[in-house]
């Protein structure tokens, strides 16, 4: 017997297996980052000497640019999936490539930010603010990296599946995109 509902949704739940799986995983991510944010709030509220405003030495423009990059990459990801739904494989390749490239841009900007911090003598050990800054953005960067690896697989070797099993491939991209 083969495993059912790999591609087609099950009647009573209306979902295919991987959809359930990825949302469960995302639920656990909510708890992971929820705990990290809780820690952040507690340490910040409980701190006697928190860093405010200028003391934080954050580059607002780089941060804004990177947010914009992330937002753009999220729309190209959705577009890549929508292109598959519309049966336009060429467009999928373009959008997916853009998504991966934007991820790379994000990492490069992040590296510049980190580098500037290190040059100014700010390390995780310097202050709890920087500890949280580096830990949270570092973990986020790891997630971006993970997403880039998965997306590169879909863009490169994984895209062969489009020929053999297009629906499953579309689903796969949706799952990767959700993450």
């Amino acid at each position: 017997m083969d495993i059912p509902y790999v591609v087609q949704p099950r009647e009573d739940t209306g979902l295919f297996n991987a959809k359930v799986g990825i949302w469960l995983f995302l639920a656990s991510e909510v708890m992971l980052f929820g705990a990290l944010f809780s820690s952040y709030i507690l340490l910040r509220v409980g701190s006697m000497n928190w860093l405010y405003g200028e003391a934080k030495d954050l580059n607002v423009w780089l941060g804004t640019a990177n947010t914009a990059v992330l937002i753009t990459s999220s729309i190209t990801m959705v577009m890549a999936w929508a292109s598959l739904k519309l049966n336009e494989f060429g467009k999928f390749k373009a959008y997916m490539g853009a998504t991966i490239l934007l991820g790379l841009v994000f990492m490069v900007i992040k590296a510049f930010e980190y580098n500037a911090k290190f040059h100014h003598g700010h390390f995780p050990a310097s202050h709890t603010f920087y500890a949280i800054y580096f830990t949270l953005t570092g973990l986020h960067a790891l997630h971006v990296l993970g997403g880039m690896v998965v997306n590169s697989f879909y863009w490169g070797p994984g895209s062969k599946m489009w020929k053999t099993d297009p629906v499953r491939f579309t689903n796969r991209v949706e799952i990767g995109g959700l993450f």
Binding site: L15, V20, W23, A27, V30
Partner: peptide, 16 residues
Amino acid sequence: EKKPIYTILVFTAFFF
């Protein structure tokens, strides 16, 4: 999205 997903997320939000 479908109902089971909502259910899972509502519980997650509650525990968070």
